[in-house]
Design a protein around this nucleic acid. Structure first.
Lengths: 121, 121
DNA sequence: CGGCATCCCACGTGATACTG
DNA sequence: CAGTATCACGTGGGATGCCG
């Protein structure tokens, strides 16, 4: 049902259409922590993700106006990702999810661990 | 990849495993707004959902310790749903998502509309 | 380095029918 | 009223290989 009142008017459905799925919130979180992070750095940070999937997620986030893709048009290529205003506005929601997840993981005796990107020199 | 560091340790993945999917956050929101809401009331509020899907979502939320199912063991049946402590702890995250969704819907010129349950007399 | 083109499949979601 | 039991399907996610 794509045309029922739920799908058309529910703010949660609207939000999850844009930042739901397996990788989008982690990506927003990462780009928020490391503004201007590069494609290759994201791949390393989230070792499980493949090119296809990462590229698709980034494209959708860009099309929905949450992130900005900055291509320096160099050889070899260099591309940075930043949050837009709309993307930044989503950060509190992503952090709220993260906080609850971390709390509950600890209550379950699991070790929460956030992605880290090595500083370059 | 179920055993990579991402899936095992990321608080967002942990959280989305429990409150992700199409209906779980709307359900948490509804049960938060209307503590003790009944099965049939939920069905009416979310007209698009079917028995199978609603029941499964409620069962998973219960198994994950987010909601409590109160069966009055009457005929005809009467069952109420409540949030547990763990479920209540998730409410701020759900509200943060809702707020962002509503903001962006308005910015897009769409009409956000939240489910309402009629008072009974 | 930062992708794209293809192909593929599990599984989340749902339609339909029936029950205590 | 509050569910079960089956079956079916679309698509989000992924594997693999190639390109400028």
């Amino acid at each position: 049902m794509k045309n029922d009142p739920m799908s058309r008017h529910c703010p949660i459905v609207y939000a999850m259409d844009r930042i739901g799925g397996k990788w989008k919130m982690p990506l927003i979180w990462l780009i928020h922590q490391y503004p201007g992070v590069r494609y290759g750095q994201i791949r390393k940070a989230y070792a499980g993700i493949t090119n296809t999937v990462l590229t698709r997620a980034l494209q959708e986030l860009e099309q929905d106006g949450l992130i900005r893709r900055v291509d320096f048009e160099e050889v070899p290529p260099r591309v940075e990702y930043h949050l837009t205003g709309k993307g930044k506005a989503a950060v509190p929601a992503v952090l709220a999810i993260t906080d609850w997840g971390r709390e509950q993981m600890e209550a379950d005796g699991k070790r929460p661990l956030l992605a880290v990107i090595e500083e370059e020199k």
